[in-house]
Simulated scan of single mutants.
Amino acid sequence: MQSVSDFTEEWQVIVDAETAGGRLDAVLARQVSAFSRSRIKDLIVGGAVSINGQTVAEPNYRLKTGEIVELVAPPPEEAEPAPEDIPLTILYEDDQVIVIDKPVGLVVHPAPGNPSGTLVNALLYHCGDSLLGIGGVKRPGIVHRLDKDTSGVMVAAKTERAHADLAAQFADHGRTGPLHRAYTAFVWGRTQQGSGTVDAPLGRDAQSRLKQAVRQGGREAITHYTAETRFGDEGWDITRLECRLETGRTHQIRVHMAHIGHPLVGDTLYASGFATKVRRLPEAAAEAVSALGRQALHAAELGFAHPITGEEMGFYSDLPDDLQRLEQALMPFDRSLPGRAG
Protein backbone atom coordinates (compact mmCIF):
# COMPACT_ATOMS: atom_id res chain seq x y z
CA MET A 1 0.00 0.00 0.00
CA GLN A 2 1.37 3.44 -0.90
CA SER A 3 0.28 6.81 0.40
CA VAL A 4 -0.29 9.23 -2.46
CA SER A 5 -1.45 12.25 -0.51
CA ASP A 6 0.13 14.33 2.23
CA PHE A 7 -2.86 16.51 3.11
CA THR A 8 -3.36 17.10 6.82
CA GLU A 9 -6.97 15.91 6.81
CA GLU A 10 -7.20 13.77 3.66
CA TRP A 11 -5.36 10.58 2.80
CA GLN A 12 -5.62 8.31 -0.24
CA VAL A 13 -3.94 4.92 -0.30
CA ILE A 14 -3.85 2.12 -2.83
CA VAL A 15 -3.93 -1.51 -1.70
CA ASP A 16 -1.04 -3.58 -3.03
CA ALA A 17 -0.35 -7.30 -2.89
CA GLU A 18 1.57 -6.99 0.36
CA THR A 19 -1.32 -5.56 2.38
CA ALA A 20 -4.25 -7.16 0.58
CA GLY A 21 -6.29 -9.22 3.02
CA GLY A 22 -5.47 -6.97 5.94
CA ARG A 23 -8.11 -5.35 8.15
CA LEU A 24 -9.10 -1.86 7.08
CA ASP A 25 -8.51 -0.32 10.53
CA ALA A 26 -5.16 -2.02 11.04
CA VAL A 27 -3.78 -1.09 7.63
CA LEU A 28 -4.93 2.51 7.89
CA ALA A 29 -3.43 2.81 11.38
CA ARG A 30 -0.04 1.78 9.96
CA GLN A 31 -0.27 4.18 7.02
CA VAL A 32 -1.84 7.22 8.71
CA SER A 33 0.49 7.89 11.62
CA ALA A 34 -1.36 11.06 12.63
CA PHE A 35 -4.09 8.98 14.31
CA SER A 36 -4.18 6.15 16.82
CA ARG A 37 -5.84 2.88 15.83
CA SER A 38 -8.80 3.59 18.12
CA ARG A 39 -9.27 6.98 16.43
CA ILE A 40 -9.03 5.33 13.00
CA LYS A 41 -11.74 2.88 14.06
CA ASP A 42 -14.00 5.73 15.21
CA LEU A 43 -13.48 7.52 11.88
CA ILE A 44 -14.37 4.38 9.92
CA VAL A 45 -17.54 3.78 11.94
CA GLY A 46 -18.38 7.47 11.55
CA GLY A 47 -18.34 7.24 7.75
CA ALA A 48 -15.06 9.03 7.09
CA VAL A 49 -13.57 6.20 4.98
CA SER A 50 -14.52 5.14 1.46
CA ILE A 51 -13.26 2.37 -0.82
CA ASN A 52 -13.53 2.95 -4.55
CA GLY A 53 -15.90 5.82 -3.80
CA GLN A 54 -18.25 3.82 -1.54
CA THR A 55 -18.42 4.46 2.22
CA VAL A 56 -17.25 1.49 4.29
CA ALA A 57 -18.12 1.61 7.97
CA GLU A 58 -16.72 -1.79 8.98
CA PRO A 59 -13.29 -1.61 10.66
CA ASN A 60 -12.73 -5.34 10.05
CA TYR A 61 -13.30 -5.09 6.27
CA ARG A 62 -10.65 -7.14 4.45
CA LEU A 63 -8.89 -5.16 1.75
CA LYS A 64 -8.38 -6.34 -1.84
CA THR A 65 -5.53 -5.60 -4.24
CA GLY A 66 -6.09 -2.46 -6.29
CA GLU A 67 -8.74 -0.91 -4.04
CA ILE A 68 -8.45 2.82 -3.47
CA VAL A 69 -9.01 3.81 0.14
CA GLU A 70 -9.78 7.41 1.02
CA LEU A 71 -9.87 8.84 4.52
CA VAL A 72 -11.31 12.32 5.01
CA ALA A 73 -11.02 13.28 8.67
CA PRO A 74 -13.30 16.08 9.81
CA PRO A 75 -11.59 19.01 11.52
CA PRO A 76 -11.35 18.57 15.28
CA GLU A 77 -14.28 19.82 17.29
CA GLU A 78 -13.77 22.77 19.59
CA ALA A 79 -12.99 21.68 23.15
CA GLU A 80 -15.64 22.22 25.79
CA PRO A 81 -13.31 24.00 28.22
CA ALA A 82 -12.95 27.64 27.20
CA PRO A 83 -9.50 29.02 26.35
CA GLU A 84 -8.27 31.33 29.11
CA ASP A 85 -5.37 33.76 29.09
CA ILE A 86 -3.48 32.28 32.04
CA PRO A 87 0.27 33.01 32.18
CA LEU A 88 2.50 29.97 31.63
CA THR A 89 6.21 29.39 32.09
CA ILE A 90 7.15 27.46 28.96
CA LEU A 91 10.37 25.44 29.01
CA TYR A 92 10.04 24.05 25.47
CA GLU A 93 7.53 23.97 22.64
CA ASP A 94 7.33 22.68 19.08
CA ASP A 95 4.49 21.52 16.83
CA GLN A 96 4.15 18.22 18.74
CA VAL A 97 4.69 18.90 22.47
CA ILE A 98 4.80 21.65 25.04
CA VAL A 99 6.71 21.48 28.33
CA ILE A 100 5.76 23.84 31.15
CA ASP A 101 6.88 24.67 34.66
CA LYS A 102 3.59 24.38 36.56
CA PRO A 103 3.14 26.81 39.44
CA VAL A 104 1.61 25.98 42.81
CA GLY A 105 -2.18 26.30 42.81
CA LEU A 106 -2.80 25.51 39.13
CA VAL A 107 -5.19 22.58 38.65
CA VAL A 108 -4.30 20.48 35.60
CA HIS A 109 -7.73 19.51 34.25
CA PRO A 110 -11.26 20.93 34.63
CA ALA A 111 -13.36 18.96 37.11
CA PRO A 112 -16.22 19.54 39.53
CA GLY A 113 -15.07 22.30 41.84
CA ASN A 114 -12.54 23.55 39.28
CA PRO A 115 -14.45 24.05 36.02
CA SER A 116 -12.09 26.78 34.80
CA GLY A 117 -8.74 28.39 35.50
CA THR A 118 -6.88 25.14 34.80
CA LEU A 119 -3.78 24.18 32.83
CA VAL A 120 -6.01 22.83 30.07
CA ASN A 121 -7.77 26.19 29.75
CA ALA A 122 -4.38 27.91 29.61
CA LEU A 123 -3.02 25.54 26.96
CA LEU A 124 -6.12 25.95 24.80
CA TYR A 125 -5.50 29.70 24.78
CA HIS A 126 -1.73 29.55 24.32
CA CYS A 127 -1.58 26.83 21.66
CA GLY A 128 -4.62 27.90 19.67
CA ASP A 129 -4.66 26.46 16.15
CA SER A 130 -1.46 24.50 16.76
CA LEU A 131 -3.58 21.94 18.64
CA LEU A 132 -4.41 19.46 15.88
CA GLY A 133 -6.85 17.43 17.94
CA ILE A 134 -6.81 14.45 20.28
CA GLY A 135 -9.59 11.94 19.63
CA GLY A 136 -11.27 14.37 17.26
CA VAL A 137 -11.37 17.21 19.79
CA LYS A 138 -9.12 20.26 19.72
CA ARG A 139 -7.52 19.82 23.13
CA PRO A 140 -4.09 19.22 24.65
CA GLY A 141 -3.11 15.63 25.38
CA ILE A 142 -2.56 15.32 29.13
CA VAL A 143 -0.44 12.20 29.75
CA HIS A 144 0.44 12.81 33.42
CA ARG A 145 -0.64 15.13 36.18
CA LEU A 146 0.66 17.00 39.17
CA ASP A 147 -1.47 17.75 42.21
CA LYS A 148 -2.81 21.29 42.41
CA ASP A 149 -0.28 22.16 45.12
CA THR A 150 2.69 20.37 43.58
CA SER A 151 4.89 22.53 41.38
CA GLY A 152 7.25 21.60 38.56
CA VAL A 153 7.80 20.16 35.10
CA MET A 154 4.97 18.77 32.98
CA VAL A 155 4.65 17.80 29.32
CA ALA A 156 1.50 17.83 27.17
CA ALA A 157 0.92 16.64 23.61
CA LYS A 158 -0.39 18.85 20.81
CA THR A 159 -1.18 16.09 18.29
CA GLU A 160 -2.78 12.68 18.44
CA ARG A 161 0.41 10.95 17.33
CA ALA A 162 2.44 12.67 20.05
CA HIS A 163 -0.23 11.88 22.63
CA ALA A 164 -0.22 8.16 21.79
CA ASP A 165 3.58 7.94 21.95
CA LEU A 166 3.93 9.89 25.22
CA ALA A 167 1.09 7.91 26.81
CA ALA A 168 2.93 4.70 25.93
CA GLN A 169 6.16 6.03 27.47
CA PHE A 170 4.41 6.95 30.71
CA ALA A 171 2.60 3.59 30.80
CA ASP A 172 5.97 1.87 30.45
CA HIS A 173 7.32 3.97 33.38
CA GLY A 174 10.74 4.22 31.76
CA ARG A 175 11.46 0.51 32.10
CA THR A 176 12.43 0.18 28.42
CA GLY A 177 12.94 3.81 27.44
CA PRO A 178 14.40 7.10 28.63
CA LEU A 179 11.36 8.37 30.56
CA HIS A 180 12.32 9.48 34.05
CA ARG A 181 10.84 11.73 36.73
CA ALA A 182 12.55 13.14 39.79
CA TYR A 183 10.96 15.13 42.61
CA THR A 184 12.39 17.16 45.46
CA ALA A 185 10.59 16.51 48.75
CA PHE A 186 11.11 17.82 52.27
CA VAL A 187 9.95 15.22 54.79
CA TRP A 188 9.65 15.05 58.54
CA GLY A 189 12.26 13.01 60.38
CA ARG A 190 15.58 11.46 59.58
CA THR A 191 15.45 8.52 57.19
CA GLN A 192 17.29 5.51 58.58
CA GLN A 193 19.06 4.88 55.28
CA GLY A 194 20.65 7.23 52.79
CA SER A 195 18.54 5.67 50.05
CA GLY A 196 15.76 3.15 49.72
CA THR A 197 12.74 1.93 47.82
CA VAL A 198 9.10 1.88 48.84
CA ASP A 199 7.26 -0.90 47.00
CA ALA A 200 3.69 -0.74 48.28
CA PRO A 201 0.45 -0.97 46.24
CA LEU A 202 -1.94 1.96 46.37
CA GLY A 203 -5.72 2.21 46.22
CA ARG A 204 -8.56 4.39 47.40
CA ASP A 205 -8.62 4.94 51.14
CA ALA A 206 -11.65 3.13 52.55
CA GLN A 207 -12.28 5.95 55.03
CA SER A 208 -11.89 8.97 52.73
CA ARG A 209 -12.59 9.43 49.04
CA LEU A 210 -9.99 12.23 48.98
CA LYS A 211 -7.12 10.00 50.03
CA GLN A 212 -5.10 7.12 48.68
CA ALA A 213 -3.73 4.39 50.93
CA VAL A 214 -1.35 1.44 50.91
CA ARG A 215 -3.61 -1.57 50.58
CA GLN A 216 -3.62 -5.17 49.41
CA GLY A 217 -5.03 -5.51 45.93
CA GLY A 218 -4.08 -1.94 45.06
CA ARG A 219 -2.18 -0.90 41.96
CA GLU A 220 1.57 -1.45 41.88
CA ALA A 221 3.45 1.61 43.16
CA ILE A 222 7.22 1.96 43.49
CA THR A 223 9.15 5.00 44.69
CA HIS A 224 12.95 5.23 44.97
CA TYR A 225 14.34 7.86 47.32
CA THR A 226 17.75 9.29 48.18
CA ALA A 227 18.55 11.62 51.07
CA GLU A 228 20.18 14.77 49.71
CA THR A 229 20.44 16.88 52.88
CA ARG A 230 19.57 16.28 56.52
CA PHE A 231 18.55 19.20 58.72
CA GLY A 232 17.94 19.04 62.42
CA ASP A 233 18.50 20.16 65.97
CA GLU A 234 17.24 19.13 69.38
CA GLY A 235 13.68 17.86 69.06
CA TRP A 236 13.27 17.94 65.27
CA ASP A 237 14.61 16.58 61.97
CA ILE A 238 13.75 17.33 58.33
CA THR A 239 15.27 15.52 55.36
CA ARG A 240 15.45 16.77 51.79
CA LEU A 241 14.89 13.80 49.47
CA GLU A 242 15.13 13.14 45.79
CA CYS A 243 12.27 10.80 44.87
CA ARG A 244 12.27 8.96 41.55
CA LEU A 245 9.09 7.34 40.36
CA GLU A 246 9.02 3.87 38.86
CA THR A 247 5.23 4.14 38.66
CA GLY A 248 2.96 7.16 38.69
CA ARG A 249 -0.05 6.78 40.96
CA THR A 250 -2.21 9.49 42.48
CA HIS A 251 -0.47 11.01 45.56
CA GLN A 252 2.20 8.30 45.27
CA ILE A 253 5.13 10.12 46.90
CA ARG A 254 2.92 11.65 49.58
CA VAL A 255 1.41 8.30 50.59
CA HIS A 256 4.65 6.32 50.36
CA MET A 257 6.60 8.76 52.49
CA ALA A 258 3.84 8.81 55.10
CA HIS A 259 3.79 5.00 54.98
CA ILE A 260 7.45 4.78 56.06
CA GLY A 261 6.95 7.37 58.80
CA HIS A 262 8.30 10.41 56.96
CA PRO A 263 5.34 12.39 55.61
CA LEU A 264 5.92 15.53 53.58
CA VAL A 265 6.34 18.79 55.41
CA GLY A 266 3.20 20.90 55.03
CA ASP A 267 1.00 18.01 53.85
CA THR A 268 -2.29 18.52 55.66
CA LEU A 269 -3.87 15.42 54.10
CA TYR A 270 -1.25 12.81 54.99
CA ALA A 271 0.74 14.49 57.77
CA SER A 272 -1.94 16.01 59.96
CA GLY A 273 -0.46 14.33 63.03
CA PHE A 274 2.84 16.15 62.46
CA ALA A 275 1.42 19.68 62.62
CA THR A 276 2.63 20.17 66.21
CA LYS A 277 6.22 19.54 65.11
CA VAL A 278 6.26 22.99 63.54
CA ARG A 279 6.39 24.45 67.08
CA ARG A 280 9.74 22.75 67.66
CA LEU A 281 11.38 24.40 64.66
CA PRO A 282 13.49 27.54 64.90
CA GLU A 283 11.47 30.67 64.25
CA ALA A 284 12.49 31.28 60.62
CA ALA A 285 11.89 27.65 59.66
CA ALA A 286 8.54 27.56 61.46
CA GLU A 287 7.43 30.67 59.60
CA ALA A 288 8.54 29.19 56.26
CA VAL A 289 6.60 25.97 56.89
CA SER A 290 3.49 27.83 58.05
CA ALA A 291 3.64 30.03 54.95
CA LEU A 292 3.78 27.05 52.55
CA GLY A 293 0.10 26.20 52.64
CA ARG A 294 0.91 23.05 50.68
CA GLN A 295 3.03 19.90 50.68
CA ALA A 296 6.75 20.52 50.19
CA LEU A 297 6.98 18.65 46.89
CA HIS A 298 8.38 19.82 43.56
CA ALA A 299 8.67 17.99 40.21
CA ALA A 300 12.27 18.98 39.53
CA GLU A 301 13.16 16.82 36.54
CA LEU A 302 11.43 15.20 33.57
CA GLY A 303 13.02 13.27 30.74
CA PHE A 304 11.43 11.50 27.76
CA ALA A 305 11.97 10.62 24.11
CA HIS A 306 10.54 13.11 21.65
CA PRO A 307 7.43 11.37 20.29
CA ILE A 308 8.36 12.00 16.65
CA THR A 309 12.14 12.30 16.40
CA GLY A 310 13.02 9.93 19.25
CA GLU A 311 15.54 12.44 20.60
CA GLU A 312 16.11 12.12 24.35
CA MET A 313 15.03 15.33 26.04
CA GLY A 314 15.50 16.49 29.61
CA PHE A 315 13.99 19.42 31.49
CA TYR A 316 14.69 20.85 34.94
CA SER A 317 12.94 23.24 37.28
CA ASP A 318 14.56 25.08 40.17
CA LEU A 319 12.86 25.10 43.54
CA PRO A 320 10.06 27.67 43.62
CA ASP A 321 10.33 30.64 45.97
CA ASP A 322 8.40 29.09 48.86
CA LEU A 323 10.60 25.99 48.99
CA GLN A 324 13.73 28.07 48.57
CA ARG A 325 12.71 30.10 51.62
CA LEU A 326 12.16 26.89 53.56
CA GLU A 327 15.56 25.51 52.59
CA GLN A 328 17.32 28.78 53.40
CA ALA A 329 15.72 28.79 56.86
CA LEU A 330 16.91 25.21 57.41
CA MET A 331 20.47 25.69 56.12
CA PRO A 332 21.98 26.76 59.49
CA PHE A 333 20.93 23.34 60.77
CA ASP A 334 22.41 21.32 57.90
CA ARG A 335 23.79 18.19 59.58
CA SER A 336 25.74 17.22 56.48
CA LEU A 337 28.10 20.18 56.88
CA PRO A 338 31.64 19.40 58.15
CA GLY A 339 31.77 19.21 61.90
CA ARG A 340 28.06 18.37 62.31
CA ALA A 341 26.51 14.98 63.06
CA GLY A 342 25.58 13.39 59.75
Rank of each mutant, 00 (worst) to 15 (best):
Q2E: 15
W11V: 03
V13D: 02
I14R: 15
E18A: 15
A20Y: 00
G22V: 00
G22D: 03
V32Q: 01
S38L: 03
R39Q: 13
R39K: 08
K41N: 10
I44N: 00
I44D: 01
G53L: 12
E58I: 01
K64V: 02
G66A: 11
I68V: 15
L71K: 00
V72L: 10
A73V: 13
P75F: 01
A79W: 06
E80K: 13
A82S: 12
P83N: 11
P83K: 08
L88R: 08
I90Q: 04
I90V: 15
E93T: 13
E93G: 10
D94N: 04
D95G: 11
Q96V: 02
Q96G: 00
V99C: 09
I100L: 15
K102L: 09
V104T: 07
G105P: 07
P110E: 06
L119W: 03
A122C: 04
C127N: 10
D129A: 15
G133D: 03
I134L: 11
G136L: 08
V137L: 06
V137H: 04
V137M: 06
R139G: 04
R139Y: 07
R139K: 15
P140K: 06
G141R: 01
G141K: 01
L146A: 05
D147R: 11
M154C: 08
T159H: 11
A162M: 05
A164D: 09
D165T: 15
D165H: 13
A167L: 12
Q169E: 15
G174K: 11
G174A: 11
L179A: 08
A182R: 08
A182M: 03
T184I: 14
F186D: 04
T191R: 14
Q192P: 04
Q192D: 14
R204L: 13
D205Y: 07
Q207W: 12
L210C: 00
Q212K: 12
Q212L: 06
A213R: 14
R215P: 00
R215I: 15
Q216D: 14
Q216T: 13
I222A: 09
I222E: 10
E228L: 15
G235M: 05
G235C: 04
W236E: 09
R240S: 03
R244Q: 10
E246F: 01
T247V: 00
G248E: 04
H251L: 02
Q252I: 08
I253V: 12
M257C: 14
H259S: 13
G261M: 07
L264G: 07
V265W: 06
A271F: 09
A275W: 02
A275Q: 15
R279T: 12
R279E: 15
R280A: 15
L281T: 07
P282C: 10
P282H: 06
E283L: 08
A284F: 00
S290N: 12
A291I: 08
L292Y: 10
G293Y: 11
R294D: 07
Q295I: 01
A296M: 02
A296G: 04
A300R: 13
E301K: 14
L302F: 04
A305P: 01
H306P: 09
P307D: 05
I308T: 12
I308Q: 12
T309E: 11
S317V: 05
L319K: 08
L319I: 05
Q324Y: 00
Q324L: 14
A329T: 04
F333A: 06
L337H: 05
G342E: 11
